[in-house]
Write a protein that binds this DNA or RNA. Structure first.
Length: 306
DNA sequence: ATCGGGATTGCCT
DNA sequence: GGCAATCCCGATG
């Protein structure tokens, strides 16, 4: 399948989804555009005309050309979590339309000794089986009875990367609909940057259902990952490492900086000011000791992670 | 068969 | 910033 250029049915070709608006984040420090110049030009045009129909040819772009294959996922968990930053998650819906979001925040769950991981201690259950499947396998699990979270299995026994937030790129009106469906009708409209800035929000916005659990990102026709052709390589100094969110009860492991996000990006769900001031791998002069807990390198087997 | 908790979110004060 | 919502899964008896 990979490398094969698929031709879309004519019925899909001529029926773009709802009007799509371009999405820019002026305040974004790394203001590099992700689209090809041609695509960008079209989107810029559509920005200036309300209710413009989506550029149809974007559905003909050769998605598979930039699709990430299984080799990409074959990396140690922390490395994959960082490598995922800047990559584009694509969801192709049954009507042929595509939703796209750029990954800007991830978390590593290492399995084994990682007490905060569903696979801690090598525990393998029906729920977390996908964490043990081949790298690139999607792990979707329900949380708090009402939400879902999406992970990607990495190299390493039971290791996976949680996707925490995306920068919405394409299909924003659809995302807004999907998100609004579960909110009060009286609630104000969500800002663009609020569409996917949380692990369960992105599942809603991209319509990722529970049944995507155990699917393969490298080969699934409905969901995949792309390299952004025009994205300049992420500078390691632009990756913030901070403690993971929502796992406070897990003691020492809660403090390890296994959350990664693009510095200054407006779509990050929770900014860690202490860690934000610091650059990725450089340890500058540190303040109070409590700050340091967020900077110490993860206490994991070097052999496994680098 | 029953019970308790959770890798979150949105609305309220 | 507090807290309810809501239910599946895994642990326990």
């Amino acid at each position: 399948m990979a490398g094969t250029k698929r031709k879309l049915p004519a019925s899909l070709a001529g029926s773009p989804e709802h009007p799509e608006s371009a999405n820019t984040f002026p305040n974004q420090t790394q203001a590099k555009r992700k689209m090809s110049p041609a695509k960008l030009k079209k989107l810029v045009i559509s920005e200036n005309i309300s209710n413009v129909t989506a550029e149809q040819s974007q559905y003909f772009t050769n998605d598979l050309q930039h699709r990430l294959g299984e080799d990409f996922f074959q990396q140690p968990c922390i490395r994959l979590a960082k490598a995922l930053l800047g990559k584009v998650l694509v969801r192709r819906r049954s009507d042929g339309t595509e939703l796209r979001g750029r990954i800007v925040e991830t978390e590593s769950y290492l399995g084994g000794e990682d007490k905060a991981s569903h696979s801690a201690g090598g525990k393998r259950t029906a729920r977390n089986l996908a964490m043990f499947m081949k790298p690139g396998t999607i792990y979707v699990y329900p949380i708090y009875g009402i939400y879902l979270c999406m992970n990607i299995s990495s190299e390493g026994e039971g290791a996976a990367v949680l996707l925490r937030s995306l920068e919405p790129l394409q299909g924003l009106p659809s995302m807004r609909e999907l998100r609004a469906a579960r909110r009060k009708e009286s609630a104000r409209q969500l800002k663009d940057k609020e569409l996917c800035n949380g692990p369960s929000k992105l599942c809603q916005a991209l319509n990722i259902p529970r049944c995507f659990d155990r699917r393969d990102l490298a080969s699934d026709p409905e969901v995949w990952l792309e390299r952004d052709p025009d994205e300049s390589p992420i500078n390691p100094q632009d990756i913030v490492s901070a403690p993971r969110i929502g796992i406070e009860s897990h003691g020492e492991w809660a403090k390890k900086p296994l959350r990664f996000y693009l510095r200054g990006h407006p779509c990050v769900s929770v900014v860690n000011k202490a860690a934000d001031g610091r650059s990725g791998n450089v340890v500058k002069d540190l303040g109070p000791s409590e700050v340091q807990s967020g900077t110490e390198r993860p206490d994991v087997k070097r052999t496994k992670q680098d």
